[in-house]
Design a protein around this nucleic acid. Structure first.
Lengths: 244, 244
DNA sequence: CTTAATATGTCATAAGTTGACATATATTTA
DNA sequence: TAAATATATGTCAACTTATGACATATTAAG
């Protein structure tokens, strides 16, 4: 029956949360009998959940009961590096869409998800978030000649971005001239639906921007990238941001 | 010191997860001494975590040890209706971007997040996901005359969409002619960065699409929407999807 | 002012957790 | 192939925690 056999306290707790997440009206006695435990024990369980930070509220007196405020929830999520960054990309993209057009609670969501990461990961997460930029829409001319990004190349880009590692790649510019680049990826930039890599290029010894779909071959080095001041990057390619 | 005082088993377990999430190399004896528990107990803790679904792997023999595969994780997330749908929108948007350009692990992410919702919410979540559509980019002409969506209006749209409730609103079309509509919202459609509502309009008794930023006043009714076959909606407004 | 609800305290006992010890199994290294 | 170093698992007495029964306080609605 149901999700668990109620063998351990933890299982019972998650069953309790399940019950609270249904929209029904629960009294503590009702819950206790549903879970086959004494009323006292149920009250202790609720106390624990509250202490653990669950938004559980109660009304005393006739017609009272207990309720869980955030009824939609995720209990636990284990993410790989790639998935963590995907989630960040998702949130950044939606955030941009939100700022520009409307607020639909994703501000709170962003905050919640950010703070739901364990403390020791928070710093990295926030650092990465700042380095994902959402610019304007791709222009028609770009749109007309953009390609699918090769999966392996995207993976390396993402991993290097995640780990702050220097990249080596061969790039094919708009005139189909190939160059070999050494490059510190500082920012990921989206001009929907085209992704760019903004950073320091060692061939020109300058700030440069590269379209990821124009990278032909790539390899990640072990060299940690040298951080440089943020403004120079943003200013150098302001035109990519303007109309959003 | 640290996050917890290790007073209860649960605290210890979360400390253990914290240790595993650092990228360090851990042997079980190392972990046991770090947590001030016997080796046997540590092995039991690991066993429990594995049973609970954590991707913990171990190598026997010299140089062996234990490791947690998804090192980036969220322990728990409580969401309101609005936040849950924001998360879904986020994922849908990114998913669309992904399908079109590349795979960066967000397929796995989508799956993970979806299955991380408790069973009783899964059905609703998946049902909603199917009703979020990502189309092509907004055309220049649309882009030039689109407005910010009023927050209250967006909230009502989202809530009605979430709860499958009929809407009443006043709509201002391209010729600035106002009409009063009764409307069953079946699909949310994004032509980045413009959101549409696709559904059944009772004024014309037909499938219709409305730009959300052109809704002037709105109210949600208690009437549950009447489900209709999906194809008629999609076919009626195919031009909104084409180039993606 | 009665009834129905949550909230909290106490204590004997039931249930679960722990560490010590033993042993099995897998892998690397010499 | 033997030694060393890991994880993996079983058992049991001692220990710790969780539980239910009972009591009582507190709050709100009718």
């Amino acid at each position: 029956m149901g999700k668990s056999d109620l063998k351990t306290k933890n299982d019972r707790t998650s069953r309790l949360l399940g019950l609270l997440r249904t929209e029904e009206h629960w009294t503590t006695h009702h819950l206790a009998s549903e879970l086959n435990i004494s009323h006292r024990t149920l009250m202790r369980d609720l106390e624990e959940l509250k202490k653990a930070g669950y938004p559980i509220e109660a009304d005393r007196g006739r017609g009272g009961g207990v309720r869980l405020n955030g009824r939609w929830g995720i209990e636990r999520l284990n993410l790989t590096n790639k998935e963590a960054i995907s989630l960040l990309l998702s949130l950044s993209v939606t955030e941009a869409l939100t700022e520009q057009s409307n607020d639909f609670g994703s501000k709170g969501l962003k905050q919640k998800i950010s703070t739901a990461f364990p403390e020791n990961q928070l710093k990295v997460i926030n650092e990465l978030r700042k380095r994902i930029l959402i610019g304007k829409l791709a222009s028609d001319s770009v749109l007309r000649n953009c390609n699918r990004v090769n999966g392996k190349i995207w993976d390396d880009v993402i991993l290097a971005f995640f780990d702050s590692k220097r990249l080596k790649f061969e790039y094919c510019n708009e005139n189909t001239i190939m160059t070999s680049r050494e490059f510190d990826p500082h920012f990921l930039l989206l001009n929907w639906p085209v992704w760019y890599l903004l950073g320091w290029d060692y061939l020109s010894d300058e700030v440069r921007i590269f379209r990821i779909d124009r990278i032909r071959t790539i390899s990640m080095t072990n060299q940690v990238i040298i951080r440089r001041a943020r403004p120079q990057f943003i200013h150098a390619y302001e035109s990519y941001f303007t109309n959003l």
